[in-house]
Design a protein around this nucleic acid. Sequence first.
RNA 1: GGCCUCGUGGCGGAAUGGCUACGCAGAGGACUGCAAAUCCUUGUAUGGGGGUUCGAUUCCCUCCGAGGCCUCCA
Length: 485
Amino acid sequence: MTTPQLRLYNTLTRSKEVFVPIDEKNVRMYVCGPTVYDFAHIGNARPVIVFDVLYRLLRHLYGKDHVKYVRNITDVDDKINARAAERGISIRDLTEGTNRIFQEDVKALGCLEPDVQPRATEHIAEMIAIMQKLIEAGHAYAAEGHVLFAVPSMADYGRLSRRPLDEMIAGARVEVAPYKRSDMDFVLWKPSRDNEPGWDSPWGRGRPGWHIECSAMSWKHLGETFDIHGGGIDLVFPHHENEIAQSRCAFGHDVMANVWMHNGFLQVEGEKMSKSLGNFVTINELLHTDKFGGRSWPGEVLRLAMLKTHYRQPIDWTVKALEEAEKTIKEWRRLLRGASRSNAKPSENFIAALSDDLNTHAAVTEIHKLAVASKSPSGEPYDRQTEMVGCLEIIGFDEFLKELPDQDDVTSDIRKSISEVGAPKAGIDLKKAGQLITARLEARKAKNFAESDRIRDDLLAMGIQLKDAKDPVTGELTTTWEVKR
RNA sequence: GGCCUCGUGGCGGAAUGGCUACGCAGAGGACUGCAAAUCCUUGUAUGGGGGUUCGAUUCCCUCCGAGGCCUCCA
């Protein structure tokens, strides 16, 4: 079997490179997960979806049992402390509750669970071990209950973000704590007051800095070096730069991860998303409220809208784009009516598109092409359908595929449409609608148009729009329908 | 100020040293008892100026424009 060549853009080298796993029986990827202090917003969803697709692609290429995906949960952080105090609840309650919602949100977006979702608070021992190694090696020092990383001790610090060390020192403008040896040194450990969460350590009771968590968790679950490290582009500096510094200096390797991947940012309707602009929107709100565009959106629509833009490009999150994505999904659902899920296999072009630095847009284009081919009366539409199913599995439309309408199941189709429209239309009596549709089809076949039009009007009043068709093979009259907004 | 992206048709958005995908919208046609839907066909684009080249949207320079990071925000 020939494994298609996977090429990924590596921020370290600023170029696309052929991906060669350290161990192709154990391909390892780490992605920075959420800090669980509040609902995840739609920008947070981007890396989750993007790297979910990469995870699925890697599993396809290397085998399900040969890929390990780790996405952490940051459950210790000063923002968490502040938020818990604000709301008058315990830190534990806040992080547990927030994480639960995050998991639900992400599942609704069609993302697989990573193999491991480690929590920062459960890796304090590993953090302490790394800090001790760093201190022994002269890359870190303790001062006034803090542990700091000595940035000047690392000759090629700044390689990922391409910031020369000397310039950074010259340009530092943050007020410098007196215990820092160099302006650039960053915190690995800091002391906690009695009312702050803290753990015992050789340097007293304290809590970890942000960056050390990821070094500890990736080490524990993936080893000293691994294949892919992902996250948002804003994490390049300082977070990922500092992770690299910690892990490389602690373990003495030239690299921490071989490939560093970063997704671009998201804007909302052409503007930066921010609470002050009032365009801040969470995944939960998109899924369950009418805050964005006056309606709620199915997870699969959000997912497709996200994948229509290459992950490194900035993406503009608009109502129009969501509507377009929904239209596409409806079209796919129609074309795949009655399609079988067994023996589904993605087309070669599709895998080639994804293998080119995760070009999800080109991959979606390939699905469109298969859709067109499946419409053609000549040829083998069922093969094209099967390939479409295979493609959709890889980009994570499992739930969508599970709910494909049967060729002749009246109510399942109506039910699906209703779930898309949301609660307001849910008052429709499915059984009655099904009976009416059947009766109307009979009347129409008998050319009793007065009766059939009357029923059609009744159904429209209920919000059900009929669409007549003729079976291309048998010439038999048929009817499909959708729920109108 | 430093570093880094990006400017492709009405909109979204890929790719490429030679013919610029795909989707949406638009237009035309077919089908249909009518409506809706569906099917077929189709117009329209590489920000400005230089350079390299037989040839540039693609490579280089420059100008204009948009955005990001440098502030524990994906």
